[in-house]
C-alpha cells in the first residue's frame, strides 16, 4: 500500500469517525444523564436529513441566493430536529423515567420504530436524491488525500466538539448536566432543575445528530428512511467502545470505529463493511465492558 493510498484511507476513516462522533455524542450524553440507551436517536439523524431536503425544496421556490438558502435550511432543520428530540423525551421517557430501566429501553425502541415508519409513510420507501453540496473536489493538486467535503465535515465536527466542551465545562447548565449524571438524587437536593436540564441534553444531542445527518446526505447524495438505523447502531457501538456516558470517550470510540471500518473494507473486503462495528462491540464487551475511557461504576445502594 502506497503512502498516498494509506493516507486516503486514513482520511476517509476519519471522516466516517467524525459523523459517528456527531451521533455518538447524543447517545453518550443521554446515557450519562438518565442511563438510557436512546434508540430513537438514530432516527433524529435521519429526520435531520429529511427535513433538510424538504426545506431546501421549499426554499428553492423563493429565489434566494444559494448560500442564504442553505444557511436557512440548515438552521431550520436543526431546530426542527431539536424539537423532535425534546418531544420524544417529553412523550416517551419523562413519565417513566423512574420506572425500571427496561421500560425506558422498550419505549425507546418503540419510538425508533414509530419514527421510521412515520417517515416511511409520510415520505417514501425509496432512496431520495439529495443535492450534493459537498463535492469531492481535491483540495491539493496532484493528490487525492483530502477533498473539500471531508474538510467541511472535519471542521464542522471540530467546531461542535469545541463548543460542546466549553458548554459542558463552563456554563451553569453544563455543570448541572455533570452534577445530574454523577448523582441525580443529590443534584435534585441541591436544587438542580432536573427536567429542564434533561430536556436541554436531548436538544443538544439532537442538534449534533441532525448536523451529522445533513453532512452525510450532502456528501453521499441520497437519503432513505432507514438510514438512521445502521448509523445509530454504529454510533452506539462507538459510544460503548469509548465508555458510554463519557463524552471524550464517545469521540475516541467513533474515530477508532471509523478508521477500523475504513481500513477493514480496504484490506479485507467491502462486503463486510457493517461487520467490523459488531466485532468491535463483541470484543469490547468481553475485554473491557466499561469501555476505553469509562470507569467501572459500582451500583449505588
Amino acid at each position: 500500500m502506497s503512502l498516498e493510498y494509506f493516507l486516503q484511507v486514513f482520511v476517509s476513516g476519519f471522516t466516517r469517525g467524525s459523523i459517528y462522533a456527531l451521533i455518538a455524542l447524543g447517545y453518550t450524553m443521554v446515557y450519562g444523564i438518565i442511563q438510557l440507551i436512546n434508540f430513537a436517536h438514530g432516527e433524529i439523524y435521519m429526520i435531520g436529513a429529511f427535513s433538510l431536503l424538504i426545506l431546501i425544496g421549499v426554499l428553492s421556490m423563493l429565489n434566494l441566493p444559494v448560500l442564504a438558502l442553505i444557511l436557512i435550511a440548515v438552521l431550520v432543520s436543526i431546530l426542527y430536529s431539536a424539537g423532535y428530540g425534546f418531544t420524544i423525551e417529553r412523550l416517551a421517557y419523562r413519565q417513566i423515567r423512574n420506572a425500571q430501566r427496561l421500560s425506558l429501553l422498550i419505549s425507546a425502541i418503540g419510538m425508533s420504530m414509530f419514527l421510521q415508519n412515520y417517515v416511511l409513510l409520510a415520505q417514501t420507501s425509496s432512496f431520495l436524491y439529495f443535492p450534493k453540496f459537498l463535492e469531492d473536489i481535491p483540495l491539493f493538486q496532484n493528490t487525492n488525500i483530502l477533498n473539500a467535503s471531508q474538510a467541511v465535515i472535519f471542521s464542522a465536527t471540530a467546531l461542535i466538539m469545541i463548543l460542546l466542551t466549553v458548554f459542558v465545562r463552563y456554563t451553569r447548565t453544563g455543570k448541572a448536566m455533570r452534577a445530574l449524571s454523577q448523582d441525580r438524587t443529590m443534584a435534585v437536593l441541591v436544587g438542580v432543575p432536573t427536567n429542564r436540564t434533561i430536556s436541554i441534553t436531548f436538544i443538544i444531542g439532537s442538534i449534533t445528530a441532525a448536523i451529522g445527518g445533513g453532512l452525510v446526505s450532502a456528501q453521499i447524495g441520497q437519503i432513505h428512511f432507514y438510514m438512521g438505523f445502521i448509523a445509530g447502531i454504529k454510533a452506539f457501538v462507538a459510544a460503548v467502545l469509548g465508555g458510554i456516558g463519557n463524552i471524550p470517550g464517545a469521540v475516541l470510540g467513533s474515530f477508532i470505529l471509523g478508521l477500523t471500518e475504513s481500513f477493514g473494507t480496504t484490506l479485507i473486503s467491502s462486503d463486510y463493511e457493517d461487520v467490523f462495528a459488531f466485532i468491535i462491540l463483541i470484543l469490547i464487551l468481553i475485554v473491557k465492558p466499561s469501555g476505553l475511557l469509562g470507569k467501572n461504576r459500582s451500583e449505588k445502594v
Partner: peptide, 15 residues
C-alpha cells in the same frame, strides 16, 4: 459530585 472540582460542587448549590 466526585468528578467535579470543589468550586464547581459549591457552584451547583447556587443553582
Amino acid at each position: 459530585f466526585d468528578e467535579m472540582t470543589v468550586l464547581e460542587n459549591v457552584m451547583v448549590g447556587f443553582h
